[in-house]
Nucleic acid binder design. Structure first.
Length: 431
RNA sequence: UCCUCGAUAGCUCAGCGGUAGAGCAUCCGGCUGUUAACCGGAGGGUCGCAGGUUCGAAUCCUGCUCGGGGAGCCA
């Protein structure tokens, strides 16, 4: 038998016979010639069977193949200008591995509802495969960047005794006789880990039981959360722009074919280099007021505000130093202006909204204690968090980046649901 | 939770008061270079559910169910 290889590597076998293993993506045929579009996860290649060359038996075997049946095909690799990937396979032999009758997803248009009901099959299509590939490369780039910068990966728990921020709705479950909740952020645990390991990060799912139904929301989504001891707000922001730029550059170099399959305008990504523009909250409010928005200092931005602010720039933009009142309890006040905190949100271009939220954290014991009282946080579940300010506290900072929003932006997707293999959305838990 | 749009063949949709339609998919036949191939033929329907108006409802009205988009909230 000829050597087994994959479609992405057939270029190394021109003129030789190879064996490919995959699935039939599509088939076109006339009376005496058949064109089999075979995919194997690494790409798609057209396999050509000419009746007078392969013989009646092999030709009939090709004829019996149906959409998405699995198969092993042996053939000679040929360079061909007419082929999309540049190569074709002249079929010598074909073996069907698994049948597939009445495959639901045809190559014609489908509605979102139908596709989501068949997500387990939808991911086989070239576009969805490409998106999942980009997602994997985004995660690899993030991990590579942080690992190469002295970070240690630490995995916070998914089951928690209560909320990290106390604001959003939590998924409730039982932990034997106790109440438990699915994590909405690992941040507090990462702060603890940063005091143990210096620079740490997590990659994992977060859960928000919000009845959100927009193209930017998932009920279950993934966050990457770096947390750094001895980092200031300024250090934090500089890390973020280097981090995001690295991720985009990595995807541009490793996912050229995938971005082409998705139809992404590469030029928009090639501009993503540090430094990113920065706007203070004050400046952002003033800009919005000048552009006809009824918004006052102290209000939080809505999605349309964010979109308009971000639309001014061709790179992601930081909005920093928000009013203390509208941000989380643990954020460090600006020493020169205690009414604002040392935080920054990073808004992606092209209307993708907030992809990063980050801040310098309060390290002073008395101030954190005061915040606990102001927000009536229960000591029995948060006592350990206060301990971090009691034993060797240091200034520290961190951020959380939403993976699906980042992938959606890099791929230019209409909706974050395509940026995760099996999206959990409002009213959708299947498949 | 609110606003808004929608539900007709396996899929995407048209039909908007007078016998249920098209393209694709499926099956049969044809075609030696197809690119969501093409050509001919066939099968395929509780028009989301329940009421109401009408001689007559897929079509108009009311309620319900399910879903899409958006808002709020957030990544």
């Amino acid at each position: 038998m000829s050597p087994i290889t994959t479609i992405d590597k057939v270029g190394d076998y021109v003129g030789q016979a190879v064996t490919l293993r995959g699935w039939l993506y599509n088939k076109r045929s006339s009376g005496k010639i058949q064109f089999l579009q075979v995919r194997d996860g690494t790409g798609v290649i057209q396999c050509v069977a000419v009746k007078s060359e392969v013989g009646d038996e092999v030709f009939a075997a090709c004829d019996a193949l149906t959409q998405e049946c699995s198969l092993i095909v042996e053939g000679v690799v040929r360079r061909d200008e007419r082929a999309k990937g540049g190569y074709e396979l002249s079929v010598l032999r074909v073996e069907r591995v698994g049948t597939s009758t009445d495959y639901p997803i045809t190559l014609k248009e489908h509605g979102v509802d139908f596709l989501l009901d068949h997500r387990h099959l939808w991911i086989r299509t070239p576009r969805q495969r490409a998106i999942l590939k980009v997602r994997a490369e985004v995660m690899r780039a993030m991990a590579d960047f942080l690992d190469g910068d002295g970070f240690t990966r630490v995995d916070p728990p998914v089951l928690t005794p209560s909320s990290c921020e106390g604001t959003t709705e939590l998924f409730h479950t039982q932990y034997f006789d106790e109440d438990a909740y699915l994590t909405q952020s690992g941040q507090m645990y990462l702060e603890a880990a940063a005091m143990a390991l210096g620079k740490v990060y997590s990659m994992g799912p977060a859960f928000r039981a919000e009845r959100s139904k927009t193209r930017r929301h998932l009920i279950e989504f993934w966050m990457i959360e770096p947390e750094m001891a001895f980092y200031t707000h300024e250090d934090n922001v500089r890390l973020q722009e280097a981090f995001v730029s690295h991720v985009v550059r990595h995807v541009l170099t490793t996912c050229e074919n995938e971005l082409a399959t998705i139809g992404r305008d590469i030029a928009k990504l090639e501009r993503i280099e540090p430094p990113f523009p920065r706007l203070s909250y004050d400046e952002a409010i003033a800009w919005l007021q000048r552009h006809g928005h009824d918004i006052r200092w102290g209000d939080d931005f809505g999605a349309p505000h964010e979109t308009e602010l971000a639309a001014q720039f061709d790179r992601p933009v930081f909005i920093e130093r928000y009013p203390t009142q509208i941000k989380a309890f643990y954020m460090q006040p600006d020493p020169e202006r205690p009414e604002v905190v040392l935080c920054a949100d990073l808004l992606a271009p092209e209307g993708y909204g907030e992809i990063i939220g980050g801040s310098q954290r309060i390290h002073d014991y008395d101030l954190m204690r005061q915040r606990f009282e102001e927000h009536r946080l229960p000591m029995d579940t948060y006592g350990w968090y206060l301990d971090l300010r009691k034993y060797g506290s240091v200034p520290h900072a961190g951020f959380g980046i939403g993976l699906e929003r980042t992938v959606a932006w890099i791929c230019g997707l209409e909706h974050v649901r395509e940026a995760i293999p099996f999206p959990r959305m409002l009213y959708r838990l299947y498949p």
